Amino acid sequence: MLPDVRTLKEQLLRIRTFATVAELVEALGEFKRRYNERWRIGRHGHRPPSQVRRDLGGRVPAAA
Protein backbone atom coordinates (compact mmCIF):
# COMPACT_ATOMS: atom_id res chain seq x y z
CA MET A 1 0.00 0.00 0.00
CA LEU A 2 1.35 3.41 -0.88
CA PRO A 3 0.83 6.58 1.12
CA ASP A 4 -1.27 9.32 -0.39
CA VAL A 5 0.62 12.05 -2.24
CA ARG A 6 -0.03 14.66 0.45
CA THR A 7 1.52 12.47 3.18
CA LEU A 8 4.49 11.69 0.98
CA LYS A 9 5.08 15.36 0.21
CA GLU A 10 4.67 16.54 3.80
CA GLN A 11 6.74 13.79 5.41
CA LEU A 12 9.55 13.35 2.87
CA LEU A 13 9.70 15.41 -0.29
CA ARG A 14 9.30 18.88 1.21
CA ILE A 15 11.79 18.33 4.04
CA ARG A 16 14.68 16.67 2.19
CA THR A 17 16.68 17.29 -0.95
CA PHE A 18 18.30 14.52 -2.96
CA ALA A 19 21.60 14.68 -4.81
CA THR A 20 20.82 11.78 -7.15
CA VAL A 21 17.85 9.85 -8.47
CA ALA A 22 19.23 6.74 -6.75
CA GLU A 23 19.16 8.56 -3.41
CA LEU A 24 15.53 9.57 -4.03
CA VAL A 25 14.55 6.01 -4.97
CA GLU A 26 16.19 4.65 -1.82
CA ALA A 27 14.42 7.25 0.36
CA LEU A 28 11.06 6.45 -1.28
CA GLY A 29 11.54 2.74 -0.65
CA GLU A 30 12.38 3.33 3.01
CA PHE A 31 9.41 5.69 3.40
CA LYS A 32 7.09 3.07 1.88
CA ARG A 33 8.39 0.37 4.26
CA ARG A 34 8.05 2.66 7.28
CA TYR A 35 4.56 3.75 6.20
CA ASN A 36 3.33 0.18 5.71
CA GLU A 37 4.79 -1.20 8.93
CA ARG A 38 4.46 1.64 11.45
CA TRP A 39 2.06 4.33 10.24
CA ARG A 40 -1.20 4.26 12.21
CA ILE A 41 -4.20 5.20 10.08
CA GLY A 42 -7.50 6.24 11.65
CA ARG A 43 -9.73 4.78 8.96
CA HIS A 44 -8.03 1.41 9.57
CA GLY A 45 -8.78 1.43 13.28
CA HIS A 46 -5.39 3.00 14.02
CA ARG A 47 -3.55 0.02 12.56
CA PRO A 48 -0.72 0.13 10.01
CA PRO A 49 -1.54 -0.90 6.42
CA SER A 50 0.49 -4.12 6.73
CA GLN A 51 -1.68 -5.24 9.68
CA VAL A 52 -4.87 -4.46 7.75
CA ARG A 53 -3.64 -6.64 4.86
CA ARG A 54 -2.78 -9.50 7.24
CA ASP A 55 -6.21 -9.23 8.89
CA LEU A 56 -7.90 -9.36 5.48
CA GLY A 57 -5.91 -12.42 4.45
CA GLY A 58 -4.11 -10.58 1.67
CA ARG A 59 -7.25 -9.17 0.09
CA VAL A 60 -7.07 -5.48 -0.81
CA PRO A 61 -9.89 -3.40 0.74
CA ALA A 62 -12.13 -1.37 -1.56
CA ALA A 63 -11.13 2.26 -2.05
CA ALA A 64 -12.80 4.69 0.32
Rank of each mutant, 00 (worst) to 15 (best):
R38C: 12
D55L: 10
I15L: 09
G57F: 08
I41A: 03
V5F: 06
K32D: 04
A19N: 09
R53D: 05
D55M: 14
R59Y: 05
V5S: 07
R43M: 13
R34P: 00
R43A: 11
R43S: 10
A19F: 05
M1P: 10
A62W: 03
E30P: 00
R6M: 00
G29V: 04
T20E: 05
L13T: 12
K32H: 07
M1K: 09
E23Q: 12
R43K: 15
W39F: 10
V25D: 07
R40V: 14
A19Q: 13
R16Y: 09
K9H: 13
L2H: 03
P3E: 08
H44D: 05
F18K: 06
F31N: 01
K32W: 01
R6C: 03
A22P: 03
E37S: 13
S50C: 04
N36T: 06
R16S: 08
V21W: 12
A62R: 12
K9Y: 10
L2V: 03
M1Y: 06
L2S: 01
R14Y: 14
T20P: 00
G45F: 10
K32T: 02
D4E: 14
R40C: 05
V52H: 11
T20D: 06
I15Y: 05
G58V: 07
E23L: 01
V52F: 06
L2F: 03
P61V: 06
I41R: 10
E30K: 01
R40M: 11
F18R: 04
V52R: 14
V21Y: 05
T20Y: 06
T17G: 14
R47Y: 08
G42K: 15
R38G: 03
R53Q: 15
N36G: 06
R34I: 02
K9N: 14
R16L: 07
R16N: 09
R53L: 15
L12W: 04
A63K: 11
E30H: 00
L24H: 06
R59P: 05
F18S: 02
R34E: 07
I41S: 04
L24K: 10
L8S: 00
F18T: 07
D55E: 15
E10A: 08
A63Y: 11
R59A: 11
P3D: 02
Q11R: 14
V5R: 13
E10W: 05
L24I: 00
L12I: 01
A22K: 14
I15C: 12
I15K: 15
G45E: 06
R53Y: 13
V25M: 10
K9W: 08
E37H: 09
P48T: 08
R53E: 12
K9R: 15
R54A: 14
P3S: 04
K32Q: 06
F31R: 01
L8W: 01
G42E: 15
W39A: 14
T7W: 04
Q11V: 00
T7Y: 03
F31K: 02
K9M: 08
I15G: 10
A22L: 07
M1I: 05
K32F: 02
T17Q: 14
P3L: 03
Y35A: 01
R33N: 00
A19E: 13
L28R: 05
G42L: 12
G42T: 15
D55T: 06
V52G: 07
V60H: 10
